Simulated assay, not measured.
Amino acid sequence: MVRPHPERRPRFTRLLGSLGLGAVLIAGCGAPDAPTPRFSGDFTEFPLSAGAQLIAPSDTPPQDTETSACAAPASLRPGTPSLGGALGDIRARGTVVVAVDQNTNLFSFRDPTTGTLTGFGVDLAREVARDLLGDPTKVEFRPLGTDDGAEMLAHRDADMVVRPVALSCEGPQDLTFSTVYLEASRRLVVRDGSGIAGPADLARRRVCTHHDPASVSALTRIAPKATILAVPDWDDCLMAIQQRQVDAVAGAAFLAGLVAQDPNLEIVGPETDSARYAIGLAPGNDDLVRFVNGTLERLRTDGTWTALYDRWLSSLGPAPGPPAPEYRD
Results as ranks from 00 to 15, higher is better:
Ala86Lys: 15
Gly88Asp: 07
Arg91His: 05
Ala92His: 11
Ala92Val: 07
Ala92Met: 11
Arg93Ser: 12
Arg93Ala: 13
Gly94Val: 05
Gly94Pro: 07
Gly94Glu: 05
Val98Pro: 03
Val100His: 03
Val100Leu: 06
Asn103Arg: 11
Leu106Arg: 14
Phe107His: 10
Phe109Met: 10
Arg110Ile: 12
Thr114Ile: 08
Thr114Trp: 01
Thr114Phe: 04
Gly115Leu: 07
Gly115Val: 07
Thr118Phe: 00
Gly119Lys: 01
Phe120Ile: 00
Phe120Val: 03
Val122Asn: 05
Leu124Tyr: 03
Ala125Ser: 15
Arg126Gln: 14
Arg126Ser: 14
Glu127Arg: 14
Glu127Val: 00
Leu133Tyr: 03
Lys138Trp: 01
Val139Gln: 08
Pro143Thr: 10
Thr146Tyr: 11
Gly149Thr: 10
Ala150Asp: 05
Glu151Asp: 10
His155Ala: 12
Arg156Asn: 11
Ala158Ile: 06
Ala158Gln: 09
Ala158Asp: 04
Val162Ala: 06
Arg163Asn: 13
Val165Thr: 14
Ser168Lys: 12
Gly171Trp: 01
Pro172Met: 05
Pro172Val: 05
Gln173Asp: 14
Gln173Lys: 11
Asp174Val: 00
Leu175Cys: 02
Leu175Asp: 01
Ser178Cys: 09
Thr179Leu: 01
Tyr181Val: 05
Tyr181Glu: 04
Leu182Arg: 01
Glu183Phe: 02
Glu183Val: 09
Glu183Asn: 06
Ala184Asn: 03
Ser185Lys: 13
Arg187Gly: 09
